[in-house]
């Protein structure tokens, strides 16, 4: 009996020991040189806005938007011999309860023009060009689907239908405007506005996560479904439109999308961000044309 007890004791110890364990470890942050993060998307009829922030060491604690923002750069936008200096500004995003900081111009962007963005920061010039030659695409219809499947999983979604122009390369993503209230939540973490109270509402804008290239459907009817970020209820009204973007916007956001997929899905190879338009900085200066808006009411 004693022998059996001894063997059982050893067995139990061995079996219980077969469970892995985790512990927090200190990762020694390697020397990291902060770079600029630049996003400036121009569209005819709108004033130009530039989001200019700095990258941070990964293991640093979170900082506010203000601390990331680079306020002391000299930013200019030039077209047809005219140069406009962009100035810093901010807007309070009611839904998120945070300020958004950016540089803005005063002159609306014009179609069929070439623009040059120049950022001078700490004696270094970061410069890129964009042309506002994109055609406004006609959004044929917008419908709703209870369940569709993409690489991100199964979702309910809004379906866009449009006809592609075969003459040029096009890159599409959706844009949506709607009201948000205290019941509206955002994203997988179900973020709710800390500011809105009672029956207060605010306007929110959503830009599509995925940007589609027309390579496989050039000249054809293109249909794509998206899962909105802001959650809705039956009867919610939204205004949806399609952005027809240039290649620079496509390459930048497509790379971000791939990286986000890799971050969420451990079976996908990690994606390294590449400096494309700006040497030693990450970012995009691109142009897009936006379609007329279509009213869409959530049927459920």
């Amino acid at each position: 009996m004693k022998r059996i007890t001894q063997i059982l004791f050893v067995s139990v110890i061995s079996l219980l020991a077969m469970v892995s364990c985790e512990k927090e470890i200190i990762i020694k942050q390697q020397p990291y040189t902060s770079k600029l993060s630049i996003q400036c998307l121009i569209t005819p009829g709108s004033i130009p806005k530039l989001f200019l922030n700095r990258t941070l060491p990964f293991m640093n604690p979170p900082v506010s938007n203000r601390e990331m923002f680079v306020p002391d750069a000299n930013v200019t936008l030039e077209t047809s011999g005219t140069t406009e200096k962009l100035v810093t500004d901010s807007v309070f995003q009611i839904f998120f309860g945070t300020y958004s900081y950016f540089y803005r111009g005063a002159t609306p962007i014009e179609a069929n023009k070439n623009y040059t963005l120049t950022i001078n920061y700490k004696g270094v010039d970061y410069s890129a060009t964009a042309s506002t030659i994109q055609q406004v695409v006609k959004l044929d219809s917008v419908t709703y689907v209870q369940n569709f499947k993409d690489i991100y999983g199964e979702h309910e979604g809004v379906v866009f239908h449009l006809k592609d122009d075969p003459a040029v390369s096009n890159y599409y993503r959706y844009e949506m405007h709607r009201s948000a209230d205290t019941a509206t939540y955002w994203g997988e973490n179900k973020f709710k506005s800390p500011i809105l109270k009672n029956n207060e509402t605010t306007r929110v804008t959503e830009i599509g996560r995925t940007i589609f290239s027309d390579t496989s459907f050039s000249g054809s009817i293109f249909t794509f479904a998206i899962e909105p970020v802001f959650k809705h209820k039956q009867g919610d009204e939204t205004y949806v439109m399609i952005q027809n973007c240039d290649k620079n916007i496509f390459e930048f956001y497509d790379e971000l999308d791939k990286q986000m997929l890799a971050l969420k899905n451990p079976f996908v190879e990690p994606v390294f961000l590449v400096s494309r338009q700006f040497k030693d900085a990450y970012g995009v200066f691109g142009s897009y044309a936006v379609s007329d808006s279509v009213l869409f009411v959530y049927p459920e």
Binding site: S37, K49, F51, T55, L56, P57, I207, R209, M260, L273
Partner: peptide, 14 residues
């Protein structure tokens, strides 16, 4: 990763 890159105007789900 060594750094983190803030990106606005992305409108992503994440």
């Amino acid at each position: 990763p060594q750094g983190k890159v803030p990106v606005f105007e992305g409108g992503t789900l994440y």
